[in-house]
Every structure is written in C-alpha cells, then in structure tokens.
C-alpha cells in the first residue's frame, strides 16, 4: 500500500517536475513566471491529437510534430512580442504572458470546441508490471522514465554544451553574457522554445489521465508552480526535487488524511515555504558583493 502510494506520487511528481522545470527555465531568464505555459502545452497536445485523429500522422510522429510546434510557438512569442517591448517591467511581462494565455485559450476553444476529447498513449490502458508486492502501471513507468530522461538530457545540455552553458549564463547575468559575445536575444528565443517543449512533454504524459479540453494543464500548472516555489524558482534541480516531493506528499495526504483536501496540499506547502524559507528548499545563495 505504502510503496504503491509512493510510486503513484512519484508518477504525478514527474509531471510536476517537468512543468516546474519549464517554468523555472523561463523565470530565470526573463524574471517572470510564464502564465501562458499551460495553454502553450495544451495547444501543442491538441495539435498532436489533431494529427492522430485526422489519421494524418501515427502517434509518435504526431508527438514529434507537436514538440516542434511547441518550440516554434515559444520562439515566436519571444521574437514577436517580448523582444519588441523596450525594457519591460515585471508587471508588463506578466500582462504579456497573461495576454498570450487568453489568446491561446481562445484559439483552442475556437478550433476544437470545449467538448472533451481523449488522447492516450498507444499502450494497453491497464497493462501493469508486478514488482514484488508493488504493481506499477505502464503509464506510470513511461511517465517516470520520460521525466527522468528529460531531466538527464537537460542536465547534460545545460552543463556540457556550448548552447546550454550560454543559456545558463544569460539566466545568471545577461549583461555579463552579452559582453562575452553571447547573442542574448537568440538565446532568449531558444529558451522560450525549450521551455515550451518541456511543458508539452508534460502535457502529453498528462493527457491520458485527464480529459483533453482547453483546461487540460490548469491543475498540473498550479502544482508545477508550487513545486517551483518549493525548489526556489531559480534552481532547476530544486524544481525537479520539488515536483517529486509534492507528488509524494500529495498522494500520501490524499490516502491517509483527506482525499477532499488533497489538492490543497500544494498551496499549504507554498505558504509554509514562503514563511520559513522564501528562497526555496534547495537554492544555494552567494550574495553579490558590491
């Protein structure tokens, strides 16, 4: 029972981790949470659904196409909207992402209607693996494995590649990055694209356990946001851990304490973190000496 709950917790935590990661990458670079992240992902999942449903592409190609689409949406938003604003304030940035959120929400409703659809992975719905006393559904295995793989690939990307290092540099100090010859605008566009791809991967993993409608990502986005705050919003590592921790706590709480209040756990955690350790549980701090 207990290990079963942990496994389920890690599985939902995997989604929160990806959502939080997508959010933190943007937050570090633009100093703004991207409120349109959920809708960007939902739109891309709809694109995948559309390709499959119209029998235009098989499942995996449709997913690949949706990820490319997500990347393009992220890049395009940075390039056509954010970059045009001359030194935008945080509030202006927030308004721009909220505007994008409503815009995409409208597009989804207009193109596909509000009625619920289903988008599932091409695996048998209830196929499971028996590991001793623990039964793990294939969907959970795929979710956990995909999220771990994403985290590993992103880690290598950010630490071992020129582009990833440049992204981290822009996130830390864009003036210093610029002066080193890094093309900051280009890096920002790519960062938005990358974030949209990660968010969409989360969306595709979440769609099978939720009806596909314009609100698909609302719940995971709020949870991912909570996970990000838990991890300090500026630490990708913290965001991922925050995601797993939130998933596990939420599941244990739902089973042992109260199922009704399960989804409130995320907010209780945010409040506790903001009270006791506002910089998040896992952020390291080197104060800047001037």
């Amino acid at each position: 029972m207990f290990s079963q709950l942990i496994i389920n917790g890690i599985s939902s935590g995997s989604l929160y981790a990806l959502v939080a990661l997508a959010m933190v990458i943007i937050y570090k670079a633009s100093e703004v949470p991207n409120f349109a992240q959920g809708e960007m992902a939902t739109l891309s999942v709809f694109v995948a659904w559309h390709f499959v449903n119209a029998q235009f592409l098989p499942f995996y190609q449709a997913v690949a196409a949706a990820l490319l689409f997500a990347f393009a949406v992220g890049v395009l938003f940075e390039f056509t909207v954010l970059r045009r604003a001359e030194k935008p304030s945080i509030l202006e940035l927030i308004v721009m992402t909220l505007g994008l959120q409503m815009f995409i929400y409208g597009i989804i409703g207009w193109k596909w209607g509000a009625e619920q659809k289903t988008f599932s992975l091409p695996i048998a719905e209830d196929s499971v693996v028996q590991l001793g006393p623990v039964v793990i559904g294939w969907l959970n295995i795929i979710t956990i494995a995909t999220s771990l793989l994403c985290v590993l690939v992103l880690y290598l990307f950010f630490t071992r590649t020129k582009l990833g290092t440049a992204m981290r540099a822009v996130q830390m100090n864009s003036t210093a990055a610029r002066i080193n010859g890094i093309r900051v605008h280009r890096i920002m566009s790519l960062t938005w694209g990358l974030s949209a791809v990660i968010g969409t991967i989360a969306g595709i993993l979440f769609a099978p356990v939720s009806p596909l409608d314009p609100q698909l990502m609302w719940d995971p986005l709020l949870k991912g946001f909570a996970a990000g705050v838990l991890g300090g919003m500026t630490s990708p590592f913290g965001a991922v851990l925050g995601g797993y921790i939130l998933g596990i706590i939420e599941n244990l709480f739902g089973a042992y304490i109260s199922l009704e209040f399960k989804s409130v756990v995320a907010f209780a955690l945010i409040v506790l973190v903001l009270w006791f350790k506002p910089s998040g549980l896992f952020s390291r701090h080197y104060e800047r000496k001037v």
Binding site: T159, R160, T161, K162, L163, T165, A166, A169, N180, G181
Partner: peptide
C-alpha cells in the same frame, strides 16, 4: 564563448 566553434555538442 566567441572562440568556440563546435556548437551544440561542445563539451
């Protein structure tokens, strides 16, 4: 940075 030629897979 500006002297690094191998782009994405550097490192």
């Amino acid at each position: 940075h500006i002297h690094m030629r191998t782009n994405i897979w550097h490192g």
